[in-house]
Computed example of a mutant assay.
Amino acid sequence: MTDGVLPCQSIDALIVEGTILAKGAPITDGQVQPASLDLRLGQRAHRVRASFLAGEGRSVADRLAEFEMHSFAIGNGAVLERGCVYLVPLEEALALPPDLSATCNAKSSTGRLDLLTRVITDDGSEFDRVPPGYRGPLWVEICPRSFSVVIDAGLALCQIRFRRGEARLDDEALASLHEAERLVDRPALIEDGLRFSVDLAREGIVGWRAKPHSGAVDMRRVAAHEAAEFWEPLHARRDHLILDPGAFYILVSREAVHIPPGYAAEMAPYLAMVGEFRVHYAGFFDPGFGHGTPARGVLEVRCHEAPFVLEHGQVVGRLVYERMAERPSRLYGAGLGSNYQGQGLKLSKHFA
Rank of each mutant, 00 (worst) to 15 (best):
residue 318 R to P: 01
residue 65 A to M: 05
residue 114 D to H: 14
residue 9 Q to S: 00
residue 248 F to S: 14
residue 201 A to P: 11
residue 336 L to F: 04
residue 92 E to Q: 09
residue 32 V to R: 09
residue 61 A to V: 14
residue 269 P to V: 13
residue 102 A to Q: 03
residue 293 T to V: 13
residue 171 D to P: 03
residue 79 V to A: 02
residue 316 V to K: 15
residue 352 A to G: 06
residue 272 A to Y: 15
residue 148 S to W: 11
residue 343 Q to R: 02
residue 306 A to D: 13
residue 189 L to G: 01
residue 155 L to N: 06
residue 113 L to N: 11
residue 301 V to M: 12
residue 173 A to G: 04
residue 228 A to Q: 12
residue 130 V to R: 02
residue 36 S to Q: 04
residue 213 H to T: 14
residue 160 I to Y: 06
residue 351 F to N: 00
residue 47 R to E: 00
residue 218 D to H: 00
residue 207 G to S: 14
residue 111 G to Y: 06
residue 296 R to M: 04
residue 352 A to T: 03
residue 132 P to F: 01
residue 211 K to T: 15
residue 197 S to G: 12
residue 29 D to N: 11
residue 66 E to P: 05
residue 136 G to M: 02
residue 220 R to H: 06
residue 97 P to V: 04
residue 274 V to R: 15
residue 117 T to H: 11
residue 91 E to N: 03
residue 164 R to P: 00
residue 218 D to V: 08
residue 24 G to H: 10
residue 182 R to Q: 11
residue 276 E to L: 09
residue 334 A to Q: 06
residue 294 P to W: 11
residue 173 A to N: 11
residue 99 D to I: 03
residue 284 F to R: 00
residue 190 I to C: 03
residue 113 L to R: 11
residue 279 V to L: 10
residue 113 L to M: 10
residue 116 L to A: 05
residue 3 D to V: 12
residue 315 V to D: 12
residue 255 E to I: 15
residue 102 A to G: 06
residue 297 G to L: 11
residue 283 G to R: 07
residue 39 L to Y: 07
residue 37 L to S: 03
residue 238 R to S: 15
residue 200 L to C: 13
residue 230 F to D: 14
residue 259 I to N: 03
residue 306 A to V: 09
residue 144 P to C: 03
residue 70 H to P: 00
residue 220 R to T: 04
residue 105 N to I: 03
residue 345 L to F: 05
residue 87 L to W: 04
residue 291 H to I: 06
residue 70 H to C: 13
residue 273 M to C: 04
residue 78 A to V: 10
residue 188 A to P: 05
residue 102 A to D: 07
residue 245 P to Q: 13
residue 11 I to S: 08
residue 196 F to Y: 09
